[in-house]
């Protein structure tokens, strides 16, 4: 109980080191979700609307990739970004950039798979009408993404939840360097192993609060939007 009190005091005191950790965590995860959305939503839409050989296999694979183990992604990205790796020249390893790359890899399949499902369901409903309006492929995709926007927010939330919670990938490619690549999850792992439980608990509380706040915000926006658009 005393530990929890100190943890709470730490959070409420607005400790600048803690604040920096929270800010970096949000920066990395939100950037990863944004990048994953830019890749995953068009990819999902394309799979939803296109017939090609092996499509079923691609869908199964995409769904399977939703459960990629973060440490394996971390390892793969580490190998790509390390000095001798194919992308070593960018010097990204052990920077926030590397962490964004790793989380983007982790989150893209989640957003793509959920977007594919959402957009395909809507396409089945809209196909006749959009075909009768002689809409081209781009017009179709635009209309579907727009009309699916509230459901797509759920896909983004799932991606954000995954990114914000994971530690395995970013600890490998980021290195958990204090003041540079230390995030909430990597700090919790470290502080717990060091025995500094108040800081770990404090960060844990902040992390949970942020996830709840983001979800509540998105849920409210979704409800309001659906009331207007049906």
């Amino acid at each position: 109980m005393t530990q929890d009190v100190t943890a709470l005091q730490l959070v409420l005191s607005g400790d600048p080191a803690l604040f920096a950790i929270v800010r970096l965590s949000l920066y990395v995860s939100l950037s990863a979700v944004a990048l994953a959305a830019l890749i995953g939503i068009p990819l999902g839409a394309w799979i939803a609307l296109t017939k090609f050989p092996g499509r079923q296999g691609v869908i199964v694979l995409l769904n399977a990739l939703m459960g990629l183990p973060p440490v394996v992604v971390g390892l793969a990205v580490y190998l790509m970004l390390s000095r001798s790796g194919p992308l070593g020249a960018f010097g990204l390893l052990f920077t926030p950039g590397a962490m964004i790359v790793a989380q983007t890899v982790l989150v893209t399949p989640i957003i793509a798979a959920l977007a594919r499902q959402t957009i395909e369901d809507l396409w089945i409903e809209y196909r006749d009408e959009l075909s009768a309006m002689n809409l081209g492929p781009l017009g179709r995709v635009a209309a579907l993404i727009w009309d699916a926007r509230f459901s797509l927010v759920t896909a983004l939330l799932a991606g954000f939840g995954r990114a914000a919670a994971e530690v395995g990938a970013i600890i490998i490619v980021g290195g958990n360097i204090e003041g540079f690549t230390r995030t909430m999850t990597t700090a919790i792992a470290l502080e717990t192993s060091k025995g500094d439980l108040p800081l770990a608990v404090g960060l844990g509380l902040v992390l949970i609060a942020i996830v709840i706040a983001v979800n509540a915000l998105a849920w409210t926006a979704r409800r309001a939007g659906e009331r207007l658009a049906g």
Partner: peptide, 17 residues
């Protein structure tokens, strides 16, 4: 179908006003 239009038996409404 640039100059043809159809009202389906069960029309689908876009999720808009």
């Amino acid at each position: 179908p640039l100059k043809r239009a159809i009202v389906f038996q069960r029309p689908a409404m876009l999720r808009r006003s």
